[in-house]
């Protein structure tokens, strides 16, 4: 029986928009075990991205409990929270969000810099990653010189370099054509088999099917699993 990675207990997020209180996430109860591959589905505005951001600790829930690896995230200070996600979570974005000023190599290296990994060790880790993703030849190129699929590969490599337990992917193939999409999803599948827990938000039934578990959201509520 796999360990529980995170659990949400009546997690809620509301924001004030003008005079109205808008509920983005409404009493979400969710348990994620290590090694799962979860696909969040639902129409635009159903709360997929918000849920990912909250799980990734970029945003906070405004109510309810959030436990990550047994630690109560909802009562943590900002500093500890950022330490936690730095250590265990990697992000993959629809628009890749590579740093334009840095080369492929440097982009992948960046998370290690923030973790104060030594230079020699960084070199080894980045080289391994480039090798694994077959992009050694592109290591000195800048993001604008790459195709969308290649940029997303770099994005995933960057997410993986810190050896996270959890990868959060928000529409990772949204800007890609179907061939590139398939490649990326195959890669996720592969990673999942190697033990990385993945939560992805997606519109595509086909992409969702790569997951081991599909959660449907509507208006901030889980409607079906």
């Amino acid at each position: 029986m796999a360990n529980t990675l995170l659990s949400l207990n009546e997690a809620t997020r509301t924001v004030n928009s003008g005079n109205n209180k808008v509920t983005l996430l409404d009493n979400i109860n969710l348990q994620v075990k290590e090694g799962e591959f979860i696909s969040l589905m639902g129409p635009s505005g159903s709360g997929k991205s918000t849920l990912l951001n909250c799980i990734g600790m970029l945003d906070g829930f405004t109510g309810g409990g959030y436990t990550f690896l047994g630690e109560p995230v909802h009562s943590m200070k900002e500093k500890n929270r950022s330490k936690l996600y730095k250590e265990y979570i990697g992000f993959v974005f629809q628009a890749y969000h590579l740093i334009d000023e840095l080369t492929v190599w440097e982009n992948i290296e960046t998370p290690l810099l923030y973790k104060n990994v030594k230079s020699s060790e960084r070199k080894g880790l980045v080289a391994d990653m480039l090798d694994r993703f077959n992009i050694v030849g592109k290591k000195d190129l800048f993001p604008v010189q790459l195709s969308g699929g290649q940029q997303q590969l770099v994005g995933i490599a960057r997410a993986l370099i810190g050896k996270p337990k959890l990868i959060l992917a928000d529409e990772p193939t949204g800007n890609l054509n179907s061939k590139q999409s398939t490649e990326i999803m195959e890669l996720f599948s592969q990673l999942n088999k190697e033990g990385v827990t993945i939560i992805q938000a997606t519109h595509s039934e086909r992409n969702a099917s790569y997951g081991s578990r599909i959660i449907n959201l509507l208006d901030g509520k889980i409607v079906s699993e």
Binding site: L58, S82, Y85, D100, Y114, K115
Partner: peptide, 13 residues
């Protein structure tokens, strides 16, 4: 802004 955002996500303080 994007650079800042990405860096923060990647763990920059």
């Amino acid at each position: 802004a994007k650079e800042v955002g990405v860096k923060k996500v990647l763990g920059s303080t």
